[in-house]
Structures are given as structure tokens and as C-alpha cells.
Amino acid sequence: MTTTRTPIDGAALLSEVEAFHRRFNVFPREAAYAAVVLWDAHAHLIDCFETTPRIAFLSPEPGSGKSRALEIIELLTPRPVATVSASANALYRLVGSGEGLPTVLFDEIDTVFGPKATADEQLRGFLNAGWRHIGGALRCVGEGSNQNAAVFDSFCAVALAGLGHLPDTILTRSVIVRMRRRARNEKVEPYRQRLHMREGHALRDRLAEWADTVRDQVAEAWPEMPEGISDRPADVWEPLLAVADAAGGEWPDRARAACVELVAASQGDDKGSIGIRLLTDLRDHVMVGLDRLPTVAIIDRLNALDDAPWADMGGRPLDSRSLSKMLREYMTADNTPVAARNIRTSGGVLKGFYSADLADAWTRYCPPPAPR
């Protein structure tokens, strides 16, 4: 006698996963709950995707719930490997072990990429290359003179948590959740792994079972992107939208709303790139309504901005030389580096910058200006 298995309601299952997160995690945006749940589910379907977004829990201060977010994800994802210190070579071998792709949970990532750390470029290479299901690291393996070239794959799901910020190359491959300390009125259930692991693993196993029923659908999916989402954010969010479409119910709409909100938040949070921060401050605070401004005036206005880094750039304020060096990395509409030009003033001719020379860079790199 053949037993008919009851179909799994994907939408209801994702809602159960969300409820489990809400018991222990307080995220600063409702959109973050949808993103994290879809990320958990995508880890069970990772072989269906060309890319796997990193999910990054970042905060300015300790005690903001980042590590707890990783602990809950650890219960819900396949073959989790939690670490606060790992070499790139060890991770390459982990991915290529043949035991199934791991879900790497990397806490305290600021100890690797923070301002007081010496950046591990090999680890950054692993994180950058491993978000796309092609390529890998080319290494020589063997003993003595008997060496052969081999490619080590790095494609796997990675969740990160740390203080401050990450390198731009990692941020642009990530769904970013900016964490903050809980307010007094924000309550969570005390988490104890020995008590809650079985419940989390039961949800994990049901996610895996559901994933097997939608694997073909997800592998062939080409999810429609929300309006205004450009190429790189589209690559990041495509797997999560495909999972949401497979689950159905409210999840397709929630996923797209979360995509728009979190992408806009990450673009508005300029700190991933000091160059984009400079361009944005010039556009929004320094040269508003002006077609040109002498360099000395630009420096004075930048250094006077509150909550900006310009007054302390490595122990001293931004100066004209540093300003020119940063701006010449960008191009004008005529494809020439942005450079200071002569500006005729009542006090004579001074070097300065023209808004027209910066307009192309403002359009290409800066987030849309806030409504006035």
C-alpha cells in the first residue's frame, strides 16, 4: 500500500521559522525578519543557485544581538560551522571535503577586517569568490617537487557578525542587517542551546524536506525584481526571492518589500566607502545650490560637518591634498579624472571644484538624495 505524503505548506513553514527567530532575536527592521528567514531556507537550496548572498549582522557597539542571530541560524541551516577564527585554506578544504556544502557562521569578523585588525586578504578572497558558483582558488598541492595545480571551490552560504563595517567587496555581496541594542521594552525569550536545539533542528529538518519538494522549481526560477533594484543587489537578492516565490502566500510580496527596504538602507548608509561618503557629503551638504566652490571653502565645510569623519582623518583633519587625491579616483562626464580647476573670486583666482565635474560621479555612485 502506497502512503501519500501530505504536501508541505512552504508559506506556513517559513512563518514558523520566523516565529522561532522572533522568540530570541530583535531585529531593527521588520524587513530583516523576512530576509533572515529566506536566507535560512536558501541555505537548504544552495545547489540551485548561481550566487549565495552573505548575510551580515553589524553594529556599532557590543551587546546588540549579533551573536545570538548566528546561534539561531546555526540551528536552522544545513551542516553549520561556527567560528571566530579560521584560515582561508581551512575553509577551502572544508567546502571541498565532499561531505556537503557547509553553512559558515563567522562571528567577531571585526577582528579580521576591523580598524584595529590586519586585514586577511586570503580570507577576503574566500568570501568574495565564494558567493558565486564559479571559480575558486588555484593552489599547488603535493609534496616536494611533485606539485600539481588544483582549484579549490569556495561556494557556500556564509553569515557574518561583527562591530563596525566590512570591506566594500563583501558588503556589496551581502544582505546587511544593522543591529542595535534592545530597548527596555523589547523582550526576548532566554536562549539555552540544550533546551532549544531539538526544536530548532526539527524546523531545520522540515525546511530540508520542503526544499527537496521545490528544488526543480527554484533551480529554474527567474524571479522578477522590484523596480529600481540594480544589477548587484539583484544578484544578491535573486536566491531569496526565488525561495519566497516557491513558498507562496505572503512571502513573495514580503520578500520584495524587504529587498527594497534593506537595499535602500544599505545604500543610504554610506560608510561602506569613504569615497562615496565624500561624494555624498559634497552633494548634500557642501555644494548645495552652488556651481563651484574653492577648495579652502570645501575643506572648511566638510570639517565642520557633525557625525562625519573629515575632521579626524588618521589623526588630522582632511586637507586639500587628501581631498584632491580622493576625488581624482572618479571621472567627469568627459571621462577625465575629477580635478581642481581655477575659480575666479573677488579675492583673486583660487583652486576649487565645479559641480558639473562631479555630477556624473554623483549620479553613478551616490544613493538618491533624501527628499527636502
Rank of each mutant, 00 (worst) to 15 (best):
V151Q: 12
V151C: 07
V151W: 11
F155I: 01
C156N: 09
A157H: 12
A157R: 03
V158C: 14
A159G: 14
A159H: 04
L163N: 03
G164E: 00
H165C: 06
P167M: 15
D168T: 15
L171R: 13
V175D: 06
R178Y: 01
M179D: 12
R180P: 05
N185F: 04
N185T: 14
V188F: 09
Y191P: 14
R192Q: 13
R192S: 15
Q193C: 10
Q193Y: 13
Q193P: 13
H196V: 10
M197N: 11
R198Q: 14
G200Y: 00
L203E: 02
D205L: 14
D205T: 13
R206A: 13
L207T: 05
L207K: 00
A208E: 06
E209H: 13
W210R: 03
W210L: 08
W210G: 10
A211E: 02
D212G: 04
T213F: 12
T213E: 06
V214I: 08
R215H: 02
Q217K: 06
A219K: 07
E220N: 05
E220H: 01
A221I: 01
W222N: 13
P223N: 00
M225S: 07
M225R: 11
P226D: 11
S230T: 10
R232A: 10
R232M: 11
R232Y: 05
R232S: 04
P233A: 05
P233M: 04
W237K: 08
W237M: 07
L241M: 05
V243K: 03
D245L: 01
A246H: 04
G248W: 02
G249Q: 02
G249M: 07
E250G: 12
W251L: 00
P252D: 02
D253M: 11
